[in-house]
């Protein structure tokens, strides 16, 4: 099994946290493999650092000044935290889907074509082909194929989330990050997104943050349990949810805290 990403002794401080005090970092020495074309779930109680870790994978934290990293995140063997790593390249390789659907105020078609146009693709038939492919991958094509020119904001929440996934997929990322992708959705839309995550595993590496433990259990191949900025346990999801090695993991899974 190929390691797509290797997190190696990663520390992270938000602006205002006492850098370089390692005890007070938001992430404390995380070491974690992310296997290629598998779904890895990050779980843990609020404030455990799961979203902070997820946002490190495409250097979202760089959007705010004063945040600091230490350690390495190797993507295909290259450290994405190094100053000379090309952020445009990183964010093309690593797409992200947020908690709340974030469609752009434009048509369904243009939403999906946006990233492609940014990359200089102008050929109409190529754009159409790739938009259709991405919408099909996101299991949305059948519902929108007759109204691609309609505004994306007219779609339901669940459809908007799948549109956003299609937009992320259009540029053919190698890794897709999901940050609580269903917490704003109803149960039917949630199960569609979950099925989609499982299907997408065939083509991309997926990392998903969820506070819904059962969701992690249902969709992931590997699970990382985090607590107070540390990685407590990482293993196959089958093992984490039937016989975790750490008592802390067992207590969290069985609802004793968190």
């Amino acid at each position: 099994m190929q390691e797509k990403i290797k997190v190696d002794n990663l520390y992270f401080w938000y602006a205002g946290q006492p850098y370089p005090d390692k005890e007070k970092a938001a992430l404390k020495g995380i070491t974690l493999p992310v296997y290629e074309k598998k779904v890895t779930a990050l779980i843990g109680p609020s404030g455990c650092g799961k979203t902070t870790l997820l946002r490190s994978f495409n250097r979202m934290h760089d959007l705010y000044p004063g945040n600091k990293y230490e350690g390495q995140i190797l993507l295909d063997g290259e450290n994405i935290l190094s100053d000379d790593y090309d952020l445009i390249k990183l964010r093309t390789k690593v797409g992200m889907v947020f908690q709340k659907p974030t469609p752009f105020p434009m048509s369904i078609f243009d939403n999906v074509a946006y990233g492609l146009k940014l990359r200089g693709i102008k050929d109409k038939s190529e754009l159409e082909g790739r938009v259709e492919k991405a919408l099909k991958q996101a299991a949305l094509w059948e519902e929108v194929k007759d109204r691609l020119k309609d505004p994306a904001t007219g779609l339901s929440g669940g459809q908007q989330q799948r549109l956003v996934i299609a937009r992320a997929l259009a540029v053919e990322p190698e890794v897709l990050l999901f940050d609580e992708p269903t917490s704003a959705l109803d149960p039917i839309s949630t199960s569609k997104i979950e099925e989609l995550v499982v299907q997408l595993r065939d083509s991309v590496t997926i990392i998903i943050v969820t506070h819904n433990m059962q969701q992690a259990a249902r969709v992931s191949d590997y699970t990382a349990f985090m607590y107070l900025g540390k990685l407590v346990e990482f293993d196959k999801t089958d093992i984490i949810f039937t016989s975790p090695k750490e008592k802390l993991t067992e207590d969290y899974i069985t609802g004793k805290f968190g």
């Binding site: 059962q214 259990a217 999801t237 089958d238 949810f241 039937t242």
Partner: peptide
């Protein structure tokens, strides 16, 4: 047995 128990644990 392991497959069944894992399925119960994961899908509730």
């Amino acid at each position: 047995e392991s497959l069944i128990i894992t399925t119960i644990a994961r899908f509730q």
